[in-house]
Design a protein around this nucleic acid. Structure first.
Length: 263
DNA sequence: ATGACGGTGTGGCACCGA
């Protein structure tokens, strides 16, 4: 069982790259963020032809998330239960596997612009709402995976310039405390369950040859619940799509599970 | 100190992202 997450920064532009990637990486589920298109523009047919069914929560111009799955996603929830939001940032679904069901939450976390701004306050409120909801999701679904573009570096290993960017957006103590709050519910960063290359990032700015110079951030994560933790066999970042023509600024993160049959 | 690149929507640019 393989699950991947990828912020595509416009599915309209990136659809051919997503189809190419899926052909080369036939994962069981792919979670997309920043679709930047309304539901009526979502390429359901092209993805069905590639073998995927979709739970879609789109929005014109900004945001928008989707879960692509080889088996039909069911019990779909859009956005955070109990947190009113104008923006399409979360879609959740249950996937059925031969070893039982698995709950998947896909989020495009708030960017937050800069500490002290209204957007930053929204980011913190959004994170509070997410934590309250995920606590209930975990209680209902012990086999929980939370993926997406978190827009927070977890610690200094996740940034190309820990000193220079200290307490700037994506690096503030407040954001990291909120992220720790999520992990404190009983979730684990799949990537750090394994030895990883130093300076591993999932996003690079389009400007200043940031990718070539590996000036990036790791802000795209796959979190797994306590129950699933022993089933995780690997977690890797696929940097290859960043070399494409007209790439997304983010690249896919993939986790492989060896699910144990439910007794 | 600022902008740098890229996407969208619209309009000759502004806004947003991270």
């Amino acid at each position: 069982m393989k699950i991947a997450t990828w912020n595509v920064n416009s599915l309209a532009v990136r659809l051919p790259q997503v189809l190419d990637w899926l052909a080369a990486n036939p994962v069981d589920a792919l979670c997309l963020q920043e679709l930047k298109l309304s539901d009526d523009k979502f390429p359901l047919e092209a993805l069905a032809a590639a073998g995927y069914q979709c739970a879609v929560f789109g929005q014109k111009t900004y945001n928008g998330v989707a879960i692509l799955s080889r088996t039909p996603p069911r019990d779909i929830v859009k956005n955070i239960n109990g947190f009113s939001d104008e923006q399409s940032r979360v879609v959740a679904a249950t996937l059925d596997t031969p070893q039982g069901e698995l709950r998947l939450v896909n989020g495009y976390f708030v960017n937050g612009q800069a500490p002290g701004t209204d957007k930053f306050e929204y980011k913190l409120r959004w994170l509070d709402g997410l934590r309250t909801w995920l606590k209930a999701e975990l209680a209902a679904h012990p086999r929980l995976v939370v993926v997406g573009d978190f827009n927070i570096t977890m610690d200094d290993r996740d940034t190309y310039d820990a000193e220079g960017l200290r307490e700037t957006i994506h690096h503030t103590t407040e954001e990291r405390e909120h992220l720790k709050g999520l992990l404190g519910l009983g979730l684990h960063d799949a990537f750090r369950l394994f030895e990883q290359p130093e300076k591993s990032y999932s996003w690079w700015d389009y400007r200043e040859f940031a990718f070539r110079r590996n000036r990036g951030l790791r802000i795209d994560y796959i979190l797994v619940s306590d129950t699933l933790k022993p089933s995780v066999k690997s977690c890797v970042i696929d940097k290859l799509p960043r070399k494409n023509e007209r790439p997304s600024d983010h690249v896919p993160v993939i986790a492989e599970f060896d699910l144990l049959s439910k007794a």
